[in-house]
């Protein structure tokens, strides 16, 4: 169901008539510079987004701006973080649009989305639970344990989102290559054009073959 929609997105949406007609997705991927600019902007905006959110997390951990109230640090820095996040989402969606099927069958991309959801969930919990009594600890050099745990989880989840994002272009687990069965299942290789080849099956085949030769 999702895959069919993505196939349509990649190959049909915006496609005109004629032999050389391209879909919008194909045109974006094949553009001379635009794809590169999108990708570069996605990466460089991380400096604005992650660089500023790290400082807020470090304040919550009591590792910087200990004499400045938490509310001052977050009120002044988070607008920059949000601006960065908006650019990241916009460029991220455009990059996904250029190669939807590649990302759909990519385990790192799927993992990135999972950690992204966890990071967002952490923000929601922080706002609805931890921040309830912020007035009581706003000026403390070392905020209470709940706030510190939220900051640690934030740092960890964004670190993982960044790492998973950087691993996406590597071909270690491409569908069609002999890869562990669990990875084939997790990135739904069976429905991909390259199909699913289980490393375990290949190993068994290899053993059988060797055995045959020995006999």
């Amino acid at each position: 169901m999702i895959r069919e929609a993505l196939v349509w997105l990649q190959t049909s949406l915006g496609k005109g008539t004629g032999d050389t007609a391209q879909s919008w997705s194909e045109a974006l991927l094949g553009s001379l510079n635009f794809w590169g600019l999108l990708e570069g902007t996605h990466l460089i905006t991380l400096v604005l987004f992650a660089g500023t959110i790290f400082v807020v997390d470090l304040r919550l951990l009591g590792l910087t701006f200990r004499k400045t109230p938490v509310s001052v640090v977050s009120d002044k820095i988070l607008p920059l973080t949000v601006a960065g996040f908006v650019i990241l989402i916009a460029t991220g969606l455009a990059l996904f649009f250029a190669k939807p099927l590649v990302y759909y069958h990519n385990i790192w991309f799927r993992a990135k989305l999972v950690f992204l959801v966890l990071a967002m969930l952490n923000i929601v919990i922080f706002h609805t639970r931890v921040q309830n009594n912020q007035a009581a600890w706003d000026t403390l050099e070392l905020p209470p344990r709940g706030a510190r745990i939220a900051a640690m989880l934030s740092l960890l989840s964004w670190l993982l989102v960044i790492a998973m994002g950087r691993f996406i272009p590597y071909n270690w687990f491409d569908c069609g290559k002999p890869i562990p069965h669990i990875v084939n299942v997790m990135q739904d290789c069976k429905t991909s054009e390259q199909g699913a080849v289980d490393k375990e099956d290949m190993a068994k085949l290899g053993v059988a073959k060797q055995g045959g030769q020995a006999r």
Binding site: V47, L48, G51, I162, F167
Partner: peptide, 28 residues
Amino acid sequence: VLHILALTLLGGTAILMNLRLLNVGITE
């Protein structure tokens, strides 16, 4: 990944420190 993380730390602190010199950011 380490290179990118270091860049975000460097870039984020550079943005905040220099924006403050432009009277923007943590002006308190």
